[in-house]
Amino acid sequence: MEPALQKSSLTTVDQEFLTFTLGDENYALDILTVKEIRGYENPTKIANAPPFIKGVINLRGDIVPIVDLRIKFSVGQATYDEFTIVIVLHIHNRIVGIVVDGVSDVVSLNKDQLRPPPDFGVAFDSRYLLGLATINEQMIILVDINELISSEEMGLFDSTVSVSSKE
């Protein structure tokens, strides 16, 4: 259902990525995990959730958690206005929304354009990075979004990752 994009699976064939911004940094994620992009709406708060989980929203009948990556990785200002964007992702049969500062473009990349990620200097742990790429003289950080969202650190899924096909 969703593409399992592994680090090794990035081929020489072009793959499309959605670029987005967090603070001043440019990031990109596999476009095939994106279900939709929508404006931010006030979510319903959930008790005992870490601050970066803003709550849940109603996405056409599905109760979907909303994660603010800006809070999670302490980049940019976590402000919410009519320009705040939520990227709704479809990962491991689950739906998750991530709050970002903006969505910029769709880019095609292949393995040759990829540079290994640095060990420091980026907000994300290198475990969740596929690498770096340069497009139009801008550095783009490729995020392994599957890995990131299903990580224990995010605490979005129960520890026994129930990839149950409830749908």
């Binding site: 959930i46 009948g61 109760i63 739906i95």
Partner: peptide, 27 residues
Amino acid sequence: IKSLEQHYKRVQGVAGATIMGDGSVAL
């Protein structure tokens, strides 16, 4: 009744969620 666990996880004290008439989510 909507499942909260389908896309998130069990939350202490919450049995599920529902969608109110205005489209907002109530626990």
